[in-house]
Design a protein around this nucleic acid. Structure first.
Lengths: 143, 143
DNA sequence: GTAATTTGTATCGGGCACCTATGTAATTAG
DNA sequence: CTAATTACATAGGTGCCCGATACAAATTAC
């Protein structure tokens, strides 16, 4: 729990992450799935039906942002909004059959751009990057 | 050079990166330094004076985005715009003494939030994440 | 049982950061 | 010298996200 990481090193990582995500965005200029929508789908695929507020806490983002993202996903047929039987105020967001399982085609298009780039690394290096992603998820979402 | 990375694994990484950057942004709600500005400073610190167009290619982003970012950085006193002696159309963006060397205090604030989080990992895991960042940079900017 | 508070979501308005398209000035090609 | 190109600035527009507020349902107080 000590300061094992210098600010200089952290700054380099931060810049690398920003630049890398921009590179991906440029590679797929028409994603038709904004970042929030992508993360919402991923959370639903992982945890099953979730309520709006829970999704917002986990992403993390504001509740209105989730409401808007779910509305878009719903009109795209990727999720369904069900009343929560236990609480009349709440909404259960459920991933639909067309997007569950293999996740949506759109999400895979973005992931494909990433997979292509990782494929240019050696298999060992690619695994290192994926492992680092899992470590970052632990920092974001300590289940 | 073959497809050593599955789309599922790439999708997990993509979602992790998005969520992690959001977590950082939430931890430092008033950065006073937008992502583009941060990357511009980092590039100048690494490569020395650069022209607007070169910065845009490297980030990557559009040229007007760099022009705006440099204008903000200039009014904050973090960079200087010098005419290019070799080309009257061009601008050389130079990092100022106050931000060069230790990079700007603002950038360090964001990096600090990241360093804190990485510090909760084991030193070995933190090193893995930093190494992965270097690998990603190779993919973004193959010097 | 009624009133007051709390909780979950929707809506409204706004802002920031980025883009494309275009304009202007300097350079290069012929 | 003229035309085409290049480097940057500016204008206009859009996407994506947030805070504040409104509303409905549930919970708590009495």
């Amino acid at each position: 729990m000590t300061a094992a990481v210098s600010e200089e090193a952290a700054l380099e990582l931060l810049v690398s992450l920003h630049r890398f995500l921009r590179t991906l965005r440029k590679a797929r200029p028409d994603p038709r799935l904004q970042p929030t929508q992508l993360v919402v789908l991923a959370l639903l695929a992982q945890y099953g039906p979730l309520r709006i507020g829970v999704i917002a806490d986990r992403i993390p983002c504001s509740q209105p942002t989730v409401t808007a993202a779910v509305a878009s996903l719903e009109s795209a047929g990727l999720v369904r909004r069900e009343p929560d039987p236990a609480d009349g105020r709440a909404i259960r967001v459920v991933i639909t059959e067309s997007s569950s399982g293999t996740m949506s085609t759109v999400a895979h298009s973005q992931a494909g751009a990433l997979a292509e780039r990782l494929g240019t690394l050696s298999p060992q290096d690619a695994q290192k990057v994926l492992e680092a992603g899992r470590l970052l998820r632990r920092l974001t979402d300590p289940d």
